[in-house]
Design a binder for these strands. Sequence first.
DNA 1: TAGATAGTTAGCTAATCATCTAATTGTTGT
DNA 2: ACAACAATTAGATGATTAGCTAACTATCTA
Lengths: 101, 101
Amino acid sequence: MSNVFKAISDNTRREILRLLREKPLSAGEISKHFPVSKPTMSAHFSVLREAGLVATHKQGKLVIYQINMSVLEDALLGFSGAIGLGLRSNTLNKGNKNAKS
Amino acid sequence: MSNVFKAISDNTRREILRLLREKPLSAGEISKHFPVSKPTMSAHFSVLREAGLVATHKQGKLVIYQINMSVLEDALLGFSGAIGLGLRSNTLNKGNKNAKS
DNA sequence: TAGATAGTTAGCTAATCATCTAATTGTTGT
DNA sequence: ACAACAATTAGATGATTAGCTAACTATCTA
């Protein structure tokens, strides 16, 4: 999906995904790590959500963001394959896409 | 490198890389595959070149573009690692980054 | 119910981007 | 030297983008 590449073309959004690698985080917790306004962060979240790279659920007044590894994997692997770059998914993570390590 | 992700965020540029997978091509040969003007294509080539994704050499009046697999591999693998997505380089292609298949 | 907190939406701006046409540079062949 | 061809540069334009402040919505708690 082209939206995935647009989404990860921005450094702030790549950093958001990196933070989400550890564990799901609320919008506010994520925003603390960046020197930009909350509305700007919210816009970044929208881009990531529309690309399917993150999923959300509400928890009280918090909105929890969670990374969606498979969408990222599909895009990267698909592109890598189309280009003839032989990237492979790590079999250790198969069926455990959100593994911390 | 952030420029790599910007470069591959555009569909035309991803297609250019896909064409270059087969073999090095001149600017004109590449341009034939796209419904945009030559100057626009030239601008796309600049973005790819500045990201280090392609290298060029002149051959008479032709400018030959060649894909640089290792830069792409480094960026994708680096990001994949930072995010905790366990992509690995295909060992079959080790030391043969420009392999056709 | 009122105040505080979390997050998004609305509306704006400056910068970047993809695209175009016209002009320029460089190379080859006659 | 000149015509033809390949490609880039110059310069303009409309669209998208990342950023901001202000205002709104929703939830919790005192």
